[in-house]
Amino acid sequence: MIRTLQLAASAAALLALAACGDNGGGGSASGARSGIWAAGSSTVFPFATRVAETFARGSGGAAPRVESLGTGGGIQAFCQGVGPTTPDIANASRQMKQSEFDLCAKNGVTDIVEIKIGFDGIVIATARNGNGFNFELNDLYEGLAKEVPGADGQFVANPAKTWNQVNAGLPNQRIQVYGPPPTSGTRDAFLELGMTPGAKLVPAVKAIEGDKDRFEAIAHTLREDGAWIDSGENDNAIVQTLTRTPGSLGVFGYSFLEQNLDTVKAETIDGVAPTADTIASGAYPLSRSLYIYVKKAHIGVIPGLQQFVQEFLSEGAAGKGGYLADRGLIPLPEDQLLAQRATIAAMTPMARPAK
């Protein structure tokens, strides 16, 4: 019965979409819409807006609507159902979680196409005139976790005030890091790629790894005493803060570093600097893939949706020397690029994520 109701709701939503597609591009009093709608990651946002601009020039129509809500916020909106009041695309700086996939399924969004569009790295940056840091991966956990092992092995509130208290090789500088909020895919990726492996290098934390919930709570909970400061879904705002707040560090995507090298610099992790080559190869520890998620139910109903998705991985956009590389996106290797294009052509739905 529940499944029947979901299908009926989806059918009604699709009828609204179809009506939208037949009305010559205008909206209607019923809430139907025309035009493509993508929402999600602040990291993917500049790439999606560039694709939208190019697509609009080629089609002669209005540019698709692109919103920066954070990966989590974009996927939440995407998963609310099928129809004109929900986005066609979720932009993401991490893969969709099992819980998000299940939310989509619960709301009738059952055919989701996952497309990898390229690579990005998460950088830890300072103002260009700031001190230099060569972080070890465990420094991230020991400096930024809310709780760390105390002298007796019990977990205590993080007592470190300066970076040299974490690692004598780091500058004697207060710990003050501006970073993305919990809704951000950049935050999720920083926890998975930086905090988690860093925590595993600390013996007392490694010892509780078997207790998954306890370990994750210890490894993923950032400080709330002012050492870590949530700074919204605007990575450019973090970049600007570094130049106004001497001694601070920022966590954001590599593409924003590329655009602001005149004012900020990236620090190394385990001796590796973030570059296009080290991120694409995975040598830089905080490397990640970027994605868009597409509602197959909206293909053929929202005018131009599949063509817009194809533009993301066109040679002019995603090829070497393409316009997305100019914005800081690190292109996929040729074999991966061809595989993703095949997924778009067939609109092959993704499997349920493992976690």
Rank of each mutant, 00 (worst) to 15 (best):
M1V: 04
Q6A: 00
L7S: 07
A8R: 08
S10L: 00
A18N: 05
D22V: 02
D22Q: 06
G25Y: 07
S28G: 15
S30C: 14
G40E: 06
G40F: 05
V44F: 01
A48Y: 10
T49R: 15
V51W: 09
S59G: 14
G70P: 03
T71A: 09
Q76R: 15
S99F: 05
F101H: 12
I115L: 08
I117R: 01
R128Q: 14
F135C: 07
F135M: 06
L137P: 04
D139M: 11
A157V: 06
N158T: 13
Q165N: 08
V166T: 12
G169L: 07
L170M: 13
L170G: 12
P171H: 14
P171W: 11
R174T: 14
V177K: 08
G179W: 03
G185D: 08
T186M: 13
A207Q: 15
I208N: 08
T221W: 05
I229S: 02
S231Y: 14
V239T: 00
T241H: 04
T241W: 00
G250K: 06
E258L: 14
Q259C: 00
T275G: 09
A280H: 06
S281M: 04
G282I: 04
P285F: 06
A297S: 09
G300E: 01
I302T: 15
Q307T: 13
G322C: 07
G322V: 08
L329G: 04
L332M: 02
P333D: 07
D335E: 11
Q340P: 01
A342W: 06
A345V: 05
A351R: 09
P353M: 09
A354T: 13
A354K: 13
K355L: 07
